[in-house]
Simulated scan of single mutants.
Amino acid sequence: MRELLTDLEAGRQLSDPDPVRRAQNQMKSAAARRFYKTVTVEREGDGFSVLLDGRVVKTPSGNAVILPTEKAARLVAEEFDSQGDRIDPLTMPVTRLVNTAIDGVAADTQAVLEDILRFSSSDLVCYRAESPDALVARQAEAWDPVLDWARAALGARFFLAEGVMHVEQPREAIGAVGLHLRQREDAFRLAALHVITAITGSALLALMFEAGALDAEAAWNAAHVDEDWNIEHWGLDAEAAARRTARKRDMIGAAALIEALH
């Protein structure tokens, strides 16, 4: 399912599963010329559709783009409206995510749910550095509140590990996360949660954000404690900076979609 999600996100049948290389591949192909003048949002049954010059936007698989809330539809509309003479999919993270939800996630929400759940069994916030002390303290400051939230909100107690040695998490904790996820089987919400989980390496950070207990910027910062530490000490080259910018754009887009679904 993870490979399916990345393929659909890229808008083609085959793609590199790595989001950065996939983005680079997309940048090599010529952007499509903008073919529309006006972008509007209209009610469509129980949802809202996005129209280009009066015609409903379709996904790569030919499905109509209909979202459950007007605010979510307007996110997609704004991305189309902001395009210049050519359409650059890399600047349209919400649209790509919506396409993924409609063409892929809706057909098998259980598989996506299980993939998010697998992240929780080796969640980023459970793996701590042994040293230096300053990094250990920084991780604790950012990640301990996430574990406290999981215990209070989900009834899930997770074990900590030092280094990269895998630690087996209690079945009760994973079960509690699974129960929470099963109450969120909407394809758009699950697709967005999957993106945040994959980018952060933490199902718990994604769920804490979705619950409104953490904002998107704080979730991003918490997920990048180790990377930021390395940047402070070793710097960041242009290629790595571009990858980081692309990841953050996709995460912020997913976060915006979740907020728009409320």
Rank of each mutant, 00 (worst) to 15 (best):
residue 1 M to T: 01
residue 2 R to T: 11
residue 3 E to S: 07
residue 5 L to Q: 11
residue 8 L to R: 14
residue 10 A to F: 01
residue 12 R to S: 06
residue 13 Q to A: 15
residue 18 D to F: 09
residue 22 R to I: 00
residue 22 R to P: 03
residue 23 A to M: 07
residue 25 N to Q: 06
residue 28 K to H: 01
residue 30 A to P: 00
residue 30 A to Q: 01
residue 34 R to N: 05
residue 35 F to V: 03
residue 37 K to C: 00
residue 40 T to R: 06
residue 41 V to W: 15
residue 43 R to T: 10
residue 43 R to A: 15
residue 43 R to D: 06
residue 44 E to H: 14
residue 47 G to D: 01
residue 48 F to R: 12
residue 49 S to W: 12
residue 49 S to A: 15
residue 54 G to Y: 13
residue 57 V to H: 02
residue 61 S to M: 10
residue 62 G to R: 08
residue 62 G to W: 07
residue 66 I to F: 12
residue 66 I to L: 06
residue 67 L to N: 14
residue 71 K to A: 15
residue 71 K to W: 13
residue 73 A to R: 14
residue 73 A to Q: 10
residue 75 L to M: 13
residue 77 A to M: 07
residue 78 E to S: 11
residue 79 E to L: 10
residue 85 D to A: 05
residue 85 D to T: 08
residue 86 R to S: 00
residue 91 T to K: 00
residue 93 P to T: 01
residue 93 P to Q: 02
residue 104 G to K: 04
residue 104 G to W: 03
residue 105 V to T: 15
residue 105 V to I: 13
residue 110 Q to V: 11
residue 114 E to G: 04
residue 117 L to R: 02
residue 119 F to R: 08
residue 119 F to T: 12
residue 123 D to K: 08
residue 125 V to K: 00
residue 128 R to A: 11
residue 130 E to H: 11
residue 132 P to N: 14
residue 134 A to H: 14
residue 135 L to W: 11
residue 144 D to Q: 10
residue 146 V to Y: 02
residue 146 V to G: 02
residue 149 W to P: 09
residue 153 A to C: 13
residue 153 A to P: 10
residue 154 L to V: 07
residue 154 L to W: 04
residue 154 L to P: 00
residue 155 G to C: 02
residue 156 A to V: 04
residue 157 R to N: 01
residue 161 A to T: 04
residue 161 A to M: 05
residue 162 E to V: 12
residue 164 V to L: 14
residue 167 V to H: 00
residue 170 P to S: 06
residue 172 E to Q: 08
residue 178 G to W: 01
residue 184 R to I: 05
residue 184 R to V: 03
residue 185 E to S: 05
residue 187 A to P: 09
residue 190 L to F: 06
residue 191 A to H: 10
residue 192 A to Y: 00
residue 193 L to A: 09
residue 201 G to H: 15
residue 201 G to F: 13
residue 202 S to K: 00
residue 202 S to Q: 01
residue 203 A to D: 05
residue 209 F to M: 02
residue 210 E to S: 15
residue 215 D to F: 08
residue 219 A to Y: 04
residue 224 H to E: 04
residue 229 W to P: 10
residue 234 W to M: 12
residue 237 D to T: 13
residue 237 D to W: 13
residue 238 A to Y: 11
residue 239 E to G: 13
residue 240 A to K: 12
residue 244 R to C: 13
residue 244 R to V: 11
residue 251 M to W: 06
residue 253 G to Q: 09
residue 254 A to E: 07
residue 258 I to M: 12
residue 260 A to C: 14
residue 262 H to F: 09
